[in-house]
Design a protein around this nucleic acid. Structure first.
Lengths: 207, 207
DNA sequence: CTATGTGAATTTATTCACAGCA
DNA sequence: TGCTGTGAATAAATTCACATAG
């Protein structure tokens, strides 16, 4: 199976596996079985083994997976084995939360710049990041920032995406609830925190 | 197809369709075709038609779907035709963003209460919501709040979930990066904003 | 004896192509 | 003619069961 294309669903799960593996590695464990990991993450052991099988064999039958090796391998597949600098656009409530969120670092992300249009915010410093005017977005290429995070109001999302693309980013995480059009070479993942809540009632028992 | 079980993937897409439909209804349009909606949302027209077909026929061949009727129907399927009161636990950076987020209202959500453990925050008022001590969670049942949102640090997530379940909620939106165990009758959706960013580099062109 | 890795079976989801209605 | 609704075909993902390795 080593030379297979990795299914999208597997790619979606890998960051979750990585999170679990890194957590368990803090617990001074050396190896982990697919069952251990499944129990910890609320997943299925066979699903985990199948997912891992798409990108190689590195488990030891009878023992499990070497944690360090496993973490390294997942990072490599996800291209998280290097640090990615990201630019945040929009330092409102959501943007500020993104800037302060501790969960990005384990995946090797570094939010290296923040932008806003509000003159009252520009120049302020949050977590060692000085907020810049959005016109400075054009400096991203020079600063080697290839990743953009959109946290602006809905109506400004499209033009923000255009500016990011113009500045040379090739990946965008879009928190605004709208579809944005970009050239094919740019990957966009849209994440509206409300849409996930919106399917919760469907699955809740009546009452 | 009217009496089919609705696929999970369809349920996942319905909130996005609803968002589009509600937006287009603001534009004073009366009807919309699957192609219109697809263009607006960056989706496929046949996928949209197929998804709608799982829960009834209400389009007009040659014309499209009546927007008002469509919105009502999607809301009904998702059980969003009534207002859902939600309790937010954890008013840190992310929690504050959730409290201020304008996107919940279109789905009929009302964040009706907020809780924290920090004495400095308790009693403060944000957006007409007075932050309460988490011990007050036990009053949720009396207040008819059936939905919980967890925005506490990772290490407090499990006990928060337990408290919410004890308080009678049957749906939880979990923003913390960990698996939480709940009784079968409670539905949990976990949403870690970092895991979505973590699969972006995989899809980005090298460089 | 335990846990991996994977073909095969099954289930689920997507895509197509077109009949049929306004 | 334009657009819906849906069976049928295809593709993708999940689940199983077990041969195999340590």
């Amino acid at each position: 199976m080593r030379y297979h294309k990795i299914p999208d669903e597997t790619v979606r799960r890998l960051p979750i596996y990585l999170r679990g593996v890194l957590f368990l590695s803090e617990q001074e464990q050396q190896s982990v079985s697919s069952q251990n990991l499944a129990d910890f993450l609320g997943a299925n052991s066979w699903q985990i083994r199948k997912d891992f099988s798409y990108f190689g064999e590195f488990g030891t039958p009878g023992v499990g997976y070497n944690i360090e090796k496993l973490a390294k391998q997942i990072k490599k597949i996800l291209k998280l084995d290097v640090t990615h600098k990201a630019a945040l656009v929009g330092v409102g409530n959501l943007g500020s939360a993104v800037l302060a969120y501790p969960g990005f670092s384990i995946y090797g992300f570094d939010i290296a710049a923040a932008f806003d249009t509000n003159p009252k915010k520009i120049g302020k410093k949050i977590k060692n990041i000085t907020i810049e005017d959005v016109s400075n977005l054009r400096t991203l290429k020079k600063r080697n920032i290839k990743l953009g995070i959109i946290a602006v109001p809905r109506d400004a999302a499209k033009q923000t995406a255009d500016a990011l693309v113009k500045a040379g980013v090739n990946g965008i995480l879009n928190f605004s609830p709208c579809y944005i059009t970009v050239p094919k070479k740019v990957k966009v993942i849209t994440l509206d925190i409300a849409t996930d809540l919106a399917r919760l009632p469907y699955y809740m028992p009546a009452g």
